[in-house]
């Protein structure tokens, strides 16, 4: 089947998918990092520590840099990128089979990926949660919310770049 006359060429489609993917990773990472910091500081507050707004801001910035560039095992944005690189194609397949909308499936895929990845890390590390801010139900929910935001970003950027058509008629994610 030949593409519609006004459809973007394959290289441009690939570029737009990559752009959407980069936006998804960035959105997921930014929210995940901020929430990780927030939950760690909340835990310290419950343990008796007190923080000025300046200290909170400094810690947020420290973690945004540290989680990306100072990790012992693997950089968090790279881990997120690897996870989303698996989750989004699965979501695209589900979209073909179910006809569900991008704005539903990609956020679900992002959230599920973050939840599964963090749960798996706890099994690998003898019951220890790798990212301290994801300990507990609310901490994990926060990281899954970040994954959902990344999925939504992916869907929105794709929609802005690629006109919406029924899933069965298109080859875009």
């Amino acid at each position: 089947m030949s593409p519609p006359p006004n459809a973007p060429g394959r290289p441009r489609r690939v570029a737009r998918v990559l752009l959407a993917f980069a936006a998804a990773v960035l959105a997921t990472y930014l929210l995940a990092s901020v929430l990780q910091t927030a939950f760690v500081l909340l835990g310290l507050r419950d343990a008796g520590a007190r923080f000025s707004p300046g200290v909170v801001l400094t810690t947020v910035l420290h973690d945004l840099h540290g989680l990306a560039f100072n990790a012992l095992f693997v950089s968090y944005p790279l881990l997120i990128a690897a996870g989303l690189a698996v989750a989004f194609p699965v979501a695209a397949l589900l979209r073909r089979w179910t006809g569900a909308g991008r704005r539903l499936l990609y956020p679900l895929a992002g959230a599920a990926m973050m939840g599964a990845m963090l749960a798996l890390s706890r099994v690998v590390f003898y019951g220890i949660t790798l990212y301290a801010g994801s300990r507990g139900a609310w901490g994990l929910a926060g990281q899954m919310l970040a994954g959902a935001l990344g999925g939504l970003a992916f869907a929105l950027v794709l929609e802005a770049a690629i006109p919406h058509r029924p899933p069965a008629e298109e080859s875009s994610p």
């Binding site: 400094t58 540290g66 989680l67 012992l72 968090y76 790798l130 990212y131």
Partner: peptide, 10 residues
């Protein structure tokens, strides 16, 4: 600091 690169505490 944490193994992830995040702060344990400020």
């Amino acid at each position: 600091v944490d193994y992830t690169g995040a702060a344990i505490t400020p």
